[in-house]
Amino acid sequence: MSVATPLLAVEGLSKSYGGIHAVRGVSFSLRAGEILALIGPNGAGKSTCFDMLNGQNQPDTGQVRLLGEEITGKKPREIWRMGVGRTFQITATFATMTVRENVQVALISHGKQLFNLFGSAPRFERGEAGRLLELVGMGGYADRPCGELAYGDLKRLELAVALANQPKLLLMDEPTAGMAPRERVDLMRLTAQIAREKSIGVLFTEHDMDVVFEHADRIIVLNRGTLIAEGTPAEVRGNPQVQAVYLGEGLVYDARHREGAST
């Protein structure tokens, strides 16, 4: 840990449902520009953990700090305003609006123009929206209705939307789920490139180990709600505990994941 305040600091995060510990005492931190993967088998508590970071879910105990500022207990929209963008495991976009409009909504929110009743939204930050779409390779799709997009394109659109408020931190829940192998590599490369250029910290969960080991700077491993390993891809790969967990059920979860099941 460097002397400087980490971008994201998580300490002793716990959550239980009816006596079952979904997440137990999880602590980790993330630096600006760093890409951190959160992995673990099904039911390890990844999604619960994730949801607690952006306010979707509230922890029983523990703290989350963004650049030293406490964000535990805040609402997702407040956390977003502090510079945390998020993409979802199952994409959440505005299906009846065009691709560009999806990005414009985020820009409108970022520009605090939500209650502007008589301005022109089609012209609002049109250029910026175009740039963001170009950035994620969606420039040619700007006028397409979002409901017509292929799944991989929706994921890229979500990334563009998440970048609209110039975030310091990106939370990406299974960013490549449902994508073709080629697309996965492209998207993660893109993400990594953006993160390095803009010095954005990225935390992502992922089932595809190829993606994880290729793109993550560091990996943390959850099992049954507890953190069992942390380190560089090489360190984690060699960790016997991690191997035990994954060899034990790796094939099973991988097959399930391909059918779209989730933690």
Binding site: P76, R77, E78, F94, M97, E101, V105, L114, S120, A121
Partner: peptide, 23 residues
Amino acid sequence: FSPFGYALRATRDSLLRTEAIGI
């Protein structure tokens, strides 16, 4: 077709997403 109208349509389409972009 105002910024407010876009935001309103956004809430109609996805509450999850609107909340996640600060609305």
